[in-house]
Amino acid sequence: MKKYKITVYDEKTGEKHTIEIEMSEEELEELAKKLAEKHNVKVRIEKV
């Protein structure tokens, strides 16, 4: 498992949230996809 920083940005409201999380790359990609689809936000992932 690796550490990642996830930034979620909502273009409508301008809200931006960043968290650090430790998980596998596959789980992370699935999480990012679900966030983007369900909440209509942009998701950026960076390795820490």
Rank of each mutant, 00 (worst) to 15 (best):
M1A: 11
M1K: 15
M1D: 09
M1G: 08
K2W: 13
K2M: 10
K2Y: 13
K2S: 15
K3G: 01
K3W: 11
K3H: 05
Y4D: 01
Y4K: 02
Y4P: 01
K5M: 10
K5D: 01
K5G: 00
K5Y: 13
K5I: 15
I6G: 00
I6C: 04
I6K: 00
T7V: 07
T7R: 00
T7E: 06
T7A: 02
V8H: 01
V8K: 00
V8A: 02
V8Q: 02
V8Y: 13
Y9L: 10
Y9M: 06
Y9Q: 05
Y9R: 03
Y9I: 12
D10R: 00
D10Y: 07
D10G: 01
E11C: 10
E11T: 12
E11I: 07
E11Q: 08
K12M: 13
K12T: 12
K12Q: 11
T13F: 03
T13G: 03
T13D: 02
T13V: 02
T13M: 03
T13Y: 02
T13I: 02
G14E: 02
G14N: 05
G14V: 00
G14L: 04
E15K: 12
E15D: 07
E15A: 09
E15I: 14
E15T: 13
E15P: 00
E15G: 04
K16Y: 15
K16N: 09
K16Q: 15
K16V: 15
H17W: 14
H17D: 03
H17I: 13
H17A: 06
H17C: 13
T18A: 04
T18Q: 05
T18H: 05
T18G: 02
T18C: 09
I19M: 11
I19A: 03
I19W: 15
I19D: 01
I19K: 02
I19S: 03
I19C: 12
E20S: 05
E20K: 04
E20Y: 15
E20Q: 05
E20F: 15
I21N: 01
I21K: 04
I21P: 00
I21T: 04
I21E: 03
I21W: 04
E22Y: 15
E22D: 06
M23P: 00
M23T: 08
M23L: 15
M23K: 01
S24A: 09
S24V: 07
S24F: 12
S24K: 08
S24W: 13
S24Y: 14
S24C: 11
E25T: 06
E25C: 09
E25W: 10
E25H: 09
E25P: 09
E25F: 08
E26W: 12
E26D: 13
E26H: 13
E26N: 12
E26Q: 11
E27M: 09
L28G: 04
L28A: 11
L28V: 15
L28C: 11
L28H: 03
L28T: 04
E29D: 11
E29Q: 13
E29I: 13
E30C: 06
E30I: 11
E30M: 13
E30R: 12
E30H: 11
E30N: 12
E30Y: 11
L31E: 02
L31Y: 14
L31M: 09
A32R: 14
A32W: 14
A32V: 14
A32T: 14
A32D: 03
A32K: 12
A32I: 15
A32Q: 10
K33C: 10
K33N: 08
K33P: 02
K34I: 12
K34N: 10
K34Y: 10
L35E: 01
L35C: 09
L35I: 06
L35R: 00
L35N: 01
L35T: 02
L35M: 08
E37G: 12
E37L: 06
E37A: 08
E37W: 01
E37V: 08
E37Y: 02
K38S: 13
K38Y: 07
K38D: 10
K38R: 14
H39A: 13
H39W: 01
H39S: 12
H39N: 08
H39F: 03
H39G: 15
N40G: 14
N40F: 04
N40E: 06
N40K: 06
N40P: 04
N40R: 08
N40A: 07
N40D: 11
V41T: 10
V41H: 06
V41R: 07
V41A: 08
V41E: 04
V41K: 08
V41D: 06
K42E: 09
K42M: 04
V43H: 03
V43N: 01
V43A: 05
V43L: 02
R44P: 01
R44C: 13
R44I: 15
R44T: 15
I45M: 03
I45C: 04
I45S: 01
I45K: 01
I45E: 01
I45V: 09
I45N: 00
I45Q: 01
E46N: 04
E46Q: 05
E46M: 01
E46A: 05
E46G: 03
K47H: 15
K47W: 06
K47D: 13
K47L: 15
V48C: 05
V48E: 05
V48L: 06
V48R: 04
V48K: 05
V48P: 04
V48H: 06
V48S: 06
